[in-house]
Amino acid sequence: MQTEDYPKLLGDIGGTNVRLALKLSPDSEISHILNLTLRDHAGAVEAIEHYLAQVGASAGPKRPRTGCLGAAGPVLGDHLQLFNAPWGFSIEGLRQALGLTRLRVLNDFTVLALALPHLPSTELVQIGGEPPAPGMTMGVIGAGTGLGVSGLVPNLHGQWSPIGGEGGHVTLPASDDHEERLIAVLRARFGHVSAERVLSGSGLVVLYEAHAQMAGVDAAVLTPADVTARGLSAQCPLCAAALNSFCLFMGTVASNLAVSLGAQGGLYIGGGIVPRLGDFFVRSGFRARFDAKGRYTGYLSRIPVFVIHTPYPALIGAAQA
């Protein structure tokens, strides 16, 4: 980008939170980062204008001229509708309302994929595998309000191209008899059981309730934070079982993504849930399940998996677009 393209508005619009920032010049650091709650604002224009007022950029030299936003939904034409939240907007309408000369809106995990080569190594926790193969495809998956999936693919000229897809909504596979029974419980309740149905905040509650049903006990009314806290502390065996199932299903779905993409450059895990699980996730059956591909176990076992602990990785990706 040229100097006249700055300041640049950067954004990561999820199903719960809206993270916004500015890049004031081509060589400046990302700054003025604020995290807003989506439900507190009627729409994208209102949230962004509120943000600009908060950081003193409503007018004058800090007012953004261009922007790039990642949004948690499929970007199909001009209209974007968030999948797990009520916001919807016209991209061109948003550009005009904000007075930007250019606005790029991408799927939030497409933006996250753009960040992968730029993430500090000190903010990545590797779980197994070998060093990443230079210049090879990278995959990224992450559970939060929903489940995001993308990849970063090198073209024939050595440049990176991100994938815009909705892989979080693939059908959830079972890897053993126990998971067959668990998915049968979920199928009776929901019909189609997607990966996002269990690999998300609400999915932690769904897994807890399914384990309670299989055990023949009444489930308590719990939030995702409750399930996580009680599972990590071993206070509730059913919550711990839910977390274990979460880690195993993440291993299956991440492995399928890695082998589909040929992600010898590494498989990266973002989102809000896995980093919070910390050592529990590292010690879980995730990596063994990730590698369990029969004749292709050797292929998978070479692929490094990195948990992203960078505070705002999608904003780094937005700065690249």
Rank of each mutant, 00 (worst) to 15 (best):
L94Q: 03
L207D: 08
V75S: 07
Y268G: 04
F109S: 00
A44D: 01
D12H: 08
L100C: 05
L243W: 07
N244Q: 15
V198K: 01
L112G: 05
G262L: 12
G129I: 04
V205T: 06
G70S: 04
D78M: 10
M250K: 06
L277W: 08
A71L: 02
S25D: 11
A57Q: 05
S233K: 03
G271E: 01
G139N: 13
G142P: 06
I141E: 02
P86D: 03
V45A: 11
F290A: 13
S25N: 05
A53G: 13
I303P: 07
Q54V: 09
S161E: 11
V125Q: 07
Q264L: 13
H211W: 13
H50Y: 14
P131Y: 09
F246M: 02
V259H: 14
A113R: 02
P131T: 07
D40C: 14
G266T: 10
E180W: 04
V193K: 06
R302L: 12
R63A: 15
F109R: 02
H79F: 11
H169D: 06
L257M: 15
L22D: 06
D218C: 11
L10S: 08
I30W: 15
P86S: 05
V111H: 00
R181A: 02
I48S: 05
T16H: 08
E166I: 06
I13P: 07
G167W: 04
